[in-house]
Design a binder for these strands. Structure first.
Length: 271
DNA sequence: CTTACCGCCTGTCGGC
DNA sequence: TGCCGACAGGCGGTAA
């Protein structure tokens, strides 16, 4: 997926397109993604309704209407593209949203780890209600993280990626922020000092904001709603750079596996 | 309560 | 060429 910066970029692109627009029709090409699609509920609650706002919570996009919020998650390979026709030109087009303005949004997701759901408000769905602190809000402070991590024996990297604690930090930005903070990804989260949390919080915000500014990083599956790829991926320090020289000390970058996901770090710079 | 592991899917890439 | 395994941006369920 799309990590947080990509989702933020997409949300920002969608907002002016659909805000105050009536969602005239929804065409479903299948009945399930990661979960069954609540087709009847979506038709009843969102078809023919005006979209008042579009917001992001963690990696979820919320389309707000008077009748509730439609929730969209892009999973690992989800994309939203805009079109002037309902015709699904791309393979794995699962849902097409038609707006009164003659804008069509196509939800494409080859791996189908994405999901669509709805909530009565901006809360009221377990997917939303269990989410932790969004790292781009003022709630993210070093002290709050230190308190949250108290007694946590899991690695700092797993901690950063746990959406019930921090909402929206994926594999790339976990690796990148730890590198920039000089913290070893395997360090137990509960033993990270306040001083190191201060650095980590700052670096995390920095890499996320940089990527948002760059229009979202892009690996092969992400395009924003305009179909334009972002370009932050060219600035990764360690992610995907196994055996390549560390940008700080030239020592080869190490790849390990943590809870089933690749971690990239520098053995000399991160202690 | 926590943590680690598994599975969900399709596509791509590198090695043989 | 083609086949096969490893791996890919996530995350919830489950077992321990």
């Amino acid at each position: 997926m799309p990590e947080l910066p990509e989702v933020e970029t997409l949300k920002n692109a969608l907002l002016p397109l659909v805000r105050h627009q009536v969602l005239e029709d929804i065409h479903f090409h299948r009945s399930n993604l990661r979960y069954p699609i609540p087709i009847a509920d979506l038709n009843e609650r969102f078809k023919g309704r005006r979209i008042d706002n579009v917001l992001r919570k963690g990696k979820y996009i919320l389309f707000q209407a008077e009748t509730g919020a439609m929730i969209l998650h892009l999973g690992m390979s989800g994309r939203v593209t805009q079109s002037h026709s309902a015709e699904a030109k791309e393979k794995h087009t699962h849902i097409v949203f038609k707006f009164q303005s003659n804008l069509y949004l196509h939800f494409v997701d080859p791996r189908r780890f994405g999901c669509v759901a709805w909530a009565p408000e901006n809360k009221g769905h377990p997917l939303l209600d269990r989410l932790g602190v969004d790292p781009m809000t003022p709630e993210l402070t070093a002290q709050a993280m230190k308190t949250l991590a108290k007694g946590c024996t899991a690695s700092i990297k797993s901690f950063l990626m746990d959406s019930h604690r921090l909402a929206g930090v994926g594999n790339i930005y976990a690796c990148e922020s730890l590198f920039r903070s000089g913290i070893r990804p395997t360090s137990p989260a509960g033993r990270v000092s306040l001083k190191r949390w201060e650095r980590l919080v700052a670096e995390l915000r920095f890499v996320l904001q940089q990527s948002i500014d760059a229009g979202g990083s892009t690996l092969r599956d992400f395009f924003n709603a305009d179909g334009e790829p972002g370009y932050y991926s060219t600035q990764f320090c360690v992610y995907g750079k196994e055996k390549q020289a560390c940008p700080q000390c030239s020592f080869p970058i190490t790849r390990i596996t943590q809870t089933g996901r690749s971690t990239f770090y520098c053995k000399k710079c991160q202690k």
